[in-house]
Design a protein around this nucleic acid. Structure first.
Lengths: 150, 150
DNA sequence: ATAGTTGCAAACGCTTTGCAACTCC
DNA sequence: GGAGTTGCAAAGCGTTTGCAACTAT
């Protein structure tokens, strides 16, 4: 039934969040936020910059860095500095995933436990902190005859 | 002139481990390994270098870096790159702990919760697995210090 | 009008490395 | 003796920043 309305592409979540904070919106920001809105995994600056330049070649790496920094500051984006290479970024709105990793089979299971969530929050609070983000990797080994699929 | 036995000070665990791998032992290494053997928390290179130079002023930062790198390679030391500042180092022989990391202050809190331990074991078992090891890093923010920033 | 943003290039902080002298086995 | 190690200074790499031109409000 829908006529040929512009696909209204993926809503730019980040732009909306930014506006809701009453912050200034510029040309480069529109592009940057658009790209960031669509990131699903954990891209690094170079990858983001590449995608951003695909839209507008003039946007500099410095601007990408500056905006990422601001997005992290206002809590829209999370920055990870796992190893010592480039940082990786993630939309803060995504619910956090924890992982079970079976090195033998190479299987990786994502899970989410509200019980765990609750316990971790308590642990943090006990030390006077609020959790910003976390990283949980559990390395496991199959129990006897557990030939699980998935 | 020698009294009885030299106090045999704190055993230099790292030196012993290194020897057991048949690797070369030099003057600077003896000092570096001695300092590393005694590290209890998660010092960074600068802190380690300071302690090392307190013993032998001539040992360079480059040498400390090079040896840390080798120790990590052979698995004696673990390197953490929590925030984006200097890496922090820990003796691998210590039982693994979970970490609370305050990126703003750079503070790092180790904790251990048997409650958490139990829950994780349950979660793994629920999926048909047994835990081999894990890595948990919780990034936090001080509760009260929310409006302390400029 | 003006406070904020941008691109550029230079500066920064942590870490690594090329080199020549030195040292442990 | 010779492979491995060291100190030094310089280079590398990811990230930040000073500046002058620009732009959103």
């Amino acid at each position: 039934m829908e006529p040929t309305q512009p696909p209204l592409e993926q809503t730019k979540i980040v732009e909306a969040m930014w506006r809701s904070k009453g912050l200034r919106l510029t040309g480069p920001r529109r592009v940057i936020f658009g790209v960031i809105s669509e990131m699903t995994n954990h891209p690094d600056v170079v990858e983001l910059h590449r995608r951003i330049q695909a839209v507008d070649r003039r946007i500099s790496l410095a601007t990408v860095y500056r905006n990422l920094r601001q997005l992290v500051e206002v809590g829209i984006v999370i920055r990870y500095a796992f190893d010592h290479g480039r940082s990786r970024y993630e939309l803060a709105s995504r619910p956090h995933q924890d992982h079970l990793i079976d090195r033998k089979s190479g299987k990786l299971i994502e899970f989410h436990s509200s019980e765990l969530e609750k316990l971790l929050n308590e642990l943090a609070a006990r030390h006077g902190y609020r959790i910003v983000s976390r990283r949980l990797e559990i390395y496991v080994e199959a129990l006897a005859a557990a030939d699980l699929r998935d």
